[in-house]
Design a protein around this nucleic acid. Structure first.
Lengths: 328, 328
DNA sequence: CTGAAAGCGCTTACAG
DNA sequence: CTGAAAGCGCTTACAG
């Protein structure tokens, strides 16, 4: 039989209320009494039932986390950062995926209604921003890890997409590159616009102009990165540097260049964005997004809200860092 | 204010007990009454409080999952498989890591005591097998995803380490290789013994003998894979194929060979184990472990235990598959 | 077929 | 400083 607060109370010769007070560190408990209760707790190895505490208090010391899929290269990092931070405060992390589409989402929604968690951490799944916004407006504390430049109307954590792209441009210019091409991500992503603007602006400041025909759209996937690169080469325009909006497409860029007999970095430099594990292996120069730190920051933000802090509308922005490797 | 069962009962002109019966699909409810209750539930959008249901029933429809770290190449796959399966049954997944060492583990332990979840899925963290065994013996339903060949005394899911290694050997022999070297994982891992045995046995069957000096121990890391390869080359013995016990060390093997001017696969073939994402990018031939499927199988096993099935001591073993790429 | 009541294991005013 | 009692929102015998 599991030991309950009633048993502890009886053994310590006090009421359940007093045991509860000791448990929760409330003032106004006689020192000797408290010591006795603590002794009994230790002796019987009593741990309060999470469910009962949650029901009585109306809060579960649990947060939910909704992610698109765990098989993306960097979701693990973000989740790890969040778990570490939450765990340190004794919070549990309920994990939800939208891997199975609508069905996943309705499961998730019912857990929301069931008040299975106190607050929500979310990496925006495709086309879900307005739903998340609704949850926030209905009073659920939400913090979003924003890797797309969505700038939601509630607390979020993002990175310096613009400055990261600027750093990439400056680095390439300093390395003597003069002909620039860009393989972007999906045009409707905020981060894509920010990365493109930062890159072009920095080049402009350096007096370099980019031919619009050398800016082609990718989809953040490796194959489309390769296809985009073939398009770039088909223009017949000269370029000696390609900035890809993420690492996966940069890998496609490298593949297509190599296949066409162009050496990386001798003929063409390639720079990516993200710094996923494969980037190091492929010796890809890239703009690192601090995924782990973003997960941590998001968790801290949510925790402070749960402890009563007011939600800040301004996103927390973490700095990117240029990681120079062989490719550019 | 949140809508409770009391409100539903009142609106439907029945008792809370009846609402509960309808909610849980119990028999013996008048059809008309049930319909009326269901209508009210739909109208007010009522969803039972997970905490209250959990407390009353003594079970939470939540399972815990303990993993060493989420930043390993394949943990994401395993967790994703588990989440998908659990979600389909309406179960939640509480995620725990031992990323912060002892502190993480004690946090985890207190959640166990607090009965925060009904059952546990675990990827064995270093040196924790006996602790997990204790939990199982104390009555907590546990299923382990066994990637190390630990063969615990409770339900587990593993792969065909032996057969996978055999397939690798047969493939290399068929490709005409004759001088074999092995970079193993840590010697105390069961999977390492199985992979070594399978490999050597298959070679033996093909009439090939392996010089013991060409079997060196690695630690499943890339750097040690490279160091091990340097040792292999330093023996002065000839070899034209290396079997590494996991992909990360296989990458180190490839790096060291290339650095020494030996071409892969022309001079030396390299085969790994796991099939992590980088393997495809590195064009590494490898033995694929079905991580996703292992997560799914483990979840199904745990679910069936929670529904009352008896624990099976025999591990569920999923087949590996040889993935042939350029390296070997 | 249905309801009143007790119980799950805590917390929290309210008295004293 | 401490206890009796109500309450958190359900489920489950027990009656009828």
């Amino acid at each position: 039989m599991r030991v309950t607060i009633a048993e502890v109370a009886q053994r310590a010769q006090v009421s359940k209320a007093t045991v509860s007070r000791v448990l929760n560190g409330k003032p106004d408990v006689d020192a000797a009494t408290a010591a006795r209760v603590r002794q009994v707790i230790a002796d019987v190895g009593y741990v309060p039932s999470a469910r009962a505490v949650g029901l009585a208090r109306g809060r579960a010391r649990t947060v939910g986390m909704l992610v698109p899929s765990l098989t993306w290269p960097w979701t693990g990092e973000v989740v790890q950062g969040a778990v570490d931070e939450l765990e340190a405060e004794g919070y549990g992390l309920l994990l939800y995926t939208v891997n199975r589409g609508t069905e996943s989402l309705s499961q998730f929604a019912s857990h929301v209604s069931a008040k299975a968690f106190d607050g929500l951490l979310v990496i925006e799944p495709p086309d879900t921003l307005s739903y998340i916004e609704t949850l926030h407006d209905q009073g659920l504390p939400v913090v979003m890890i924003d890797d797309r430049g969505s700038r939601p109307g509630f607390p979020s954590v993002s990175t310096t997409n613009r400055e990261g792209a600027q750093a990439a441009a400056q680095h390439l210019v300093a390395a003597g590159r003069r002909g620039f091409a860009v393989v972007t991500g999906p045009a409707n992503f905020g981060c894509v616009r920010e990365r493109l603007d930062g890159f072009l602006d920095a080049l402009g400041d350096a007096g370099v102009h980019v031919d619009p025909r050398l800016v082609v759209e990718g989809d953040f996937g490796t194959d489309r990165g390769a296809v985009a690169t073939e398009k770039l080469m088909a223009t017949g325009l000269r370029f000696d540097a390609v900035f890809a909006h993420n690492d996966l497409s940069a890998l496609g860029v490298m593949r297509a260049l190599t296949a066409a007999g162009r050496k990386v970095p001798d003929d063409v430099a390639v720079v990516g964005f993200d710094d996923i594990p494969i980037a190091a292996h492929a010796e890809l120069t890239t703009v690192r997004q601090p995924m782990r730190e973003m997960g941590e920051a998001a968790a801290r933000l949510l925790l402070s809200r749960l402890e009563g802090a007011a939600p800040s509308r301004e996103p927390v922005v973490l700095p990117t860092a240029l990681v120079v490797r062989r490719s550019g």
